[in-house]
């Protein structure tokens, strides 16, 4: 039983920034040993589960401290977690599973990239978390774009909707460039810079088109999803731009 609880704690600590990880894991394991001896298995289980479930917030709080180069990115991760919760609730209520999967996958992908950044301050795009996050974001974002291509609603006023997929396609191109720049060291600075510009500008265009369609079009289901996703991506791109501009990381002039 204690071995399982230790494994839960180790799992939770994996998400923490590098400079805190091993110390907090040791500290939590010591507390666990004493709790299981003095207060019983149930208290130890509650303690371990609390640490595991709270680990993302612990990681974000540690990352949000002053002086940490990924303060901005951590803040973005927090802004992303809220829409994710919203999507789950919304998807269950509306039963529009394809919207739910595509948008949640995209935002969870961005969150994973943020976590990767928090974990390795010097080589953020080279972490497995960031790579997995980018792949998930690209796959889910492509689903979103496919929905945008096929699901354009006829605008009752303009007799045709604005092409939302133009914005989301540019975002996907930006994310793809970021993935490649994490894998290939050649021209890394330049490709990150262009990738972030594509992501930010694409998300801006996307947001404006969605706003125009939401105001003018009759249906609102997919617009509601997109009005959360697109601005979140603008915030994420801006934060990543600021984070990458720090001398501790890639030092891209902003």
């Amino acid at each position: 039983m204690t071995g399982l609880l230790r494994a839960l704690i180790s799992l939770g600590s994996m998400i923490l920034p590098l400079d805190h990880r091993s110390r907090l894991r040791d500290e939590w394991n010591a507390e666990l040993s004493i709790i299981s001896t003095q207060s019983g298995r149930l208290a130890a289980l509650r303690f371990s589960l609390g640490l595991l479930l709270g680990a993302p917030m612990t990681a974000l709080a540690l990352g949000a401290d002053e002086g940490n180069p990924f303060r901005e990115t951590s803040i973005v991760a927090q802004t992303v977690l809220l829409p994710c919760t919203f999507f789950v609730a919304y998807g269950v209520l509306s039963r529009q599973l394809h919207f739910l999967l595509a948008h949640t996958g995209l935002l969870v992908g961005v969150t994973l990239v943020s976590i990767g950044m928090c974990r390795d301050l010097r080589h953020p795009l080279e972490t497995m978390w960031a790579r997995a996050g980018l792949v998930l974001a690209i796959v889910s974002g492509s689903m979103v774009t496919a929905i945008n291509v096929n699901g354009e609603v006829t605008n009752p006023i303009l007799s045709g909707a604005f092409r939302v997929y133009l914005g989301s396609s540019v975002v996907m191109l930006g994310l793809l460039l970021l993935l490649v720049s994490g894998l290939v060291p050649l021209y890394r600075h330049r490709s990150i810079q262009i990738g972030l510009l594509f992501t930010g500008a694409g998300a801006l265009v996307w947001t404006l088109l969605v706003i125009a369609n939401t105001v003018l079009a009759a249906t609102w289901v997919d617009r509601t999803f997109q009005i959360v996703t697109a601005p979140t991506l603008i915030a994420a791109s801006y934060a990543a731009w600021k984070a990458f501009g720090r001398p501790e990381t890639y030092g891209i002039p902003g």
């Binding site: 500290e27 609390g50 640490l51 709270g54 680990a55 612990t58 401290d65």
Partner: peptide, 12 residues
Amino acid sequence: LKPSTLYPTFAR
């Protein structure tokens, strides 16, 4: 205080 608040505050 929850651990997610407590330990970052300790670190700070």
